[in-house]
Design a protein around this nucleic acid. Structure first.
Length: 544
RNA sequence: GUCCCCGUAGCUCAGUGGACAGAGCGCGGGACUUCUAAUCCCGGCGUCGCAGGUUCGAAUCCUGCCGGGGACACCA
C-alpha cells in the first residue's frame, strides 16, 4: 500500500495538472514536482509547477501560480495553496486528512513503514567479509552496521534480502596465520623468536590461540597448514559471535576453501577462456577487463602457474550470479576501490548485465578521543577491535554513530561523545523520547476508545502527524538510495518534535476527548520510533 | 601520473536544480508545586575551496584549478 504521504503528493500533482490542462497548458506529467518545502513556514508540501509552465504559458511564474491557486477546488487532501516566493505553491494538508495517519500507524503497528517498492525481488548483500586472521576491527563494525541496516531497510521496502559473509579461509593469508601459530608455539616452548618475519601476523591474539591449541591437548609441533586452518576457523567463529553481539546475523557463511575444492576456480577460468576474455601473454593469463572499461587488464594465472587472488573472487562472483538473484550488492572497504573495475568487467564477461552487481565502498573510520585521532597501526598489530569499541561505548551508540554518516564518506567516531549520557548524545535523545512515551502509557488509565484525531490542530501536533506520514517514504528512499543515514536524521527530528510537544501540552489530563487523541498520537509516535530504531538495530529502553 | 571520496557556521555534518543555505554541538541567557529536565525556549554564528560556463533559477550540473584523504601488484 502506498504511504499516505505519497498519496498526498500524487493527488496534489494530479489536481494541479488538471487545472493546468483546463487552462490549456500542457506539460509532461513527470515534470510536476511536489515535494516537502526546503524550510518550515512554506507549508507542508510545495510545488514548482508554475516555473515549469512559464515557457508553455508564456506568462511569468507568479501569474501562473495565482491562476492555479484560484482554480483549486474543494479537495480532501489540501486547501487552496498560497503563492510564495516568485511562484511557489505552498500547500497545507487538511487536518482531518492528515490526522487519519494516527489510525493508520496504530493499525499497522510494527509493519508501518513497509512498502512494496522492491516488488519481492531477491537481493544478495555481502558485507564485512574480513579475513579470518584476526579479530574484527572498528572499520568492520561500520560495514556490519551499514550492511545490516541496509538489509533491513530493503526488506522493509519489499525486497527479499540474504546476508552473506565471504570467508577467505584459504590461500596465502591462512598460510601466514599458520606460520604465526607455529612461531607462537615455538615461543611457548621457551624458544623466543628473534626476528618476526615480514607479513606474518604479529598480533598478540595468536599467542592466545596457540595457548588454546596446547590446552586442548594438541601437539606442539604441527603442520603450518593445519595450524592455519584451525586458527582461521576459531577466529571466524569468534567473528560470528562478535557480530551476533552487535546484532548482525548472516544467512550464509560462504567458504573460499569450499569454493576452491569444488573446482569453481577452474570452471570460471575455462569459461572466460572459452569466451575469449582470458588470453595468454608473457607467460601469464590475462583477463581482458579493459574491454569493459577497467583501467588495465588483470592477471589471473601468474607465469609460475599459480592463481592471483582474483581467481577465487571471480569464481565466488560467478557462483553468486548463477544463483539467480535480481541484484548483488558488495560492500567493500576503501582499500578495495581498485577492485571495482575488474568486478564490473567480470559480471559482463560472464554474460550478465552490468547493473546486476552493485559495489559500494564503505569508507574509513577514524576514532577520536579528546579531540585527537587514536593511533592505529595494523602493521604493528595495534588496532582497536570492534569488541573493544562495543565494550567501551555499547552497541546502541556504536551502531548509531556508524549509521549517522553516508557510507561513502569517511567517519570520525567521537569516543567521548558516544559515551555521554546527556542531550549531546543523539542516541539517548531519541531513546529518551521513546522512554517518555512508554512512561506515559504506564501512567495512562485504560485508554478511552473514542477520540477524534481531528482535534489535533496545534502546530506541535501537526508536526508530529506530518512526521508520521512521511516515515514510509523515508524508509523507501533510504532503501532505494542505499542511504541508511536518512534514519538517524529522521528519528532525531521526530524525537525533537515529540519533546517539544510534550513540554508544551498536557496529554493525560487534557480536556475531554483531547486526552485520548493526544495519547493515540503519542502511541503512534512510539510505534514509529520503535520501528526506526529497530531498523538501525538499536534498542528501545522502557525507562531511562 | 590515473581513478575515487571530501572541501558548507568555531566544531561535526545535512542539503546534489528551486524560496533569504539548514541541524546538532559549542557559546550566552531563560523555563520544572503538574504525565521522565537524558527535556524545552530565546539569541549571534556563512567569500557553500577558487575561477569560468549551462539555466528563469547553481552549494547542487559542466570545465579548469587549489587543498585534504584514499586507491592504483604476476600481494591478499
Amino acid at each position: 500500500m502506498k504511504s499516505r504521504y505519497l498519496r498526498a503528493v500524487e493527488e496534489i500533482a494530479q489536481q494541479l495538472l488538471a487545472i493546468a490542462r483546463s487552462q490549456g497548458w500542457e506539460i509532461a506529467e513527470d515534470a510536476v514536482l511536489v515535494q516537502p518545502p526546503s524550510e518550515p513556514g512554506h507549508g507542508d508540501l510545495t510545488s514548482n509547477l508554475a516555473f515549469r509552465l512559464a515557457r508553455v504559458a508564456r506568462r511569468p511564474p507568479q501569474a501562473i501560480a495565482e491562476t492555479l491557486a484560484q482554480n483549486w477546488p474543494e479537495h480532501p487532501v489540501a486547501d487552496a495553496p498560497e503563492v510564495g516566493g516568485a511562484g511557489f505553491l505552498n500547500f497545507r494538508l487538511k487536518t482531518l486528512w492528515l490526522a487519519a495517519v494516527v489510525d493508520e500507524v496504530l493499525e499497522q503497528g510494527p509493519q508501518y513503514g513497509n512498502s512494496e517498492e522492491g516488488k519481492g525481488r531477491r537481493a544478495l548483500l555481502e558485507f564485512v567479509s574480513a579475513n579470518p586472521t584476526g579479530p574484527l576491527v572498528v572499520a568492520n563494525g561500520r560495514a556490519a552496521a551499514v550492511g545490516d541496516t541496509l538489509a533491513r531497510l530493503m526488506e522493509a521496502a519489499g525486497w527479499q534480502v540474504e546476508r552473506e559473509y565471504y570467508v577467505n579461509d584459504a590461500g596465502n593469508q591462512i598460510q601466514r596465520l599458520g606460520q604465526a601459530m607455529a612461531l607462537r608455539l615455538q615461543e611457548l616452548r621457551g624458544q623466543p623468536v628473534a626476528v618476526w618475519p615480514e607479513g606474518v601476523y604479529p598480533g598478540a591474539y595468536v599467542r592466545r590461540l596457540a595457548e588454546r591449541w596446547l590446552a586442548e591437548g594438541r601437539p606442539a609441533a604441527a603442520e603450518v597448514e593445519e595450524l592455519g586452518r584451525w586458527a582461521a576457523e576459531v577466529l571466524r567463529a569468534e567473528q560470528e559471535e562478535e557480530l551476533l553481539r552487535f546484532g548482525v546475523r548472516y544467512d550464509r557463511w560462504f567458504s573460499e576453501r569450499g569454493l576452491r575444492e569444488s573446482g569453481a576456480c577452474e570452471a570460471v577460468l575455462s569459461q572466460l577462456r572459452a569466451a575469449g576474455w582470458l588470453v595468454e601473454e608473457e607467460g601469464a593469463q590475462w583477463f581482458l577487463s579493459t574491454h569493459w572499461g577497467d583501467d588495465k587488464n588483470r592477471v589471473m594465472v601468474k607465469s609460475d602457474g599459480s592463481w592471483t587472488y582474483f581467481v577465487p573472487d571471480a569464481a565466488y562472483h560467478a557462483d553468486k550470479l548463477a544463483r539467480g538473484y535480481d541484484l548483488l550488492i558488495d560492500l567493500l572497504g576503501p582499500d578495495h576501490h581498485g577492485y571495482l573495475g575488474r568486478l564490473k568487467a567480470l559480471v559482463q564477461a560472464l554474460g550478465y548485465p552490468e547493473d546486476r552487481l552493485e559495489v559500494r565502498i564503505v569508507q574509513l573510520v577514524r576514532l577520536v578521543r579528546g579531540g585527537e585521532p587514536v593511533r592505529m597501526s595494523k602493521r604493528e598489530g595495534e588496532f582497536v577491535t570492534l569488541a573493544e569499541l562495543v565494550d567501551e561505548v555499547g552497541v546502541d551508540p556504536a551502531r548509531w554513530f556508524f549509521l549517522e554518516r553516508a557510507m561513502d564518506t569517511p567517519l570520525d567516531f567521537d569516543l567521548d561523545l558516544a559515551q555521554l549520557r546527556t542531550n549531546e548524545n543523539p542516541v539517548y535523545y531519541v531513546q529518551y523520547a521513546a522512554a517518555r512515551i512508554k512512561s506515559l502509557l504506564r501512567s495512562a488509565e485504560a485508554p478511552s476508545q473514542t477520540y477524534s484525531a481531528a482535534e489535533l490542530v496545534e502546530p506541535e501536533e501537526r508536526a508530529l502527524l506530518l512526521g508520521l506520514a512521511r516515515f514510509p517514504e523515508v524508509v523507501a528512499e533510504a532503501a532505494r538510495e542505499r542511504a541508511p543515514h536518512y534514519l538517524p536524521r529522521f528519528l532525531t527530528e521526530l524525537a525533537g518534535d515529540f519533546h517539544l510537544f510534550y513540554r508544551r501540552h498536557r496529554i493525560l489530563n487534557a480536556p475531554g476527548t483531547l486526552a485520548a487523541a493526544r495519547l493515540a498520537l503519542a502511541r503512534a509516535v512510539l510505534v514509529v520510533l520503535e520501528r526506526g530504531l529497530g531498523l538501525m538495530g538499536i534498542s528501545v529502553p522502557d525507562r531511562m
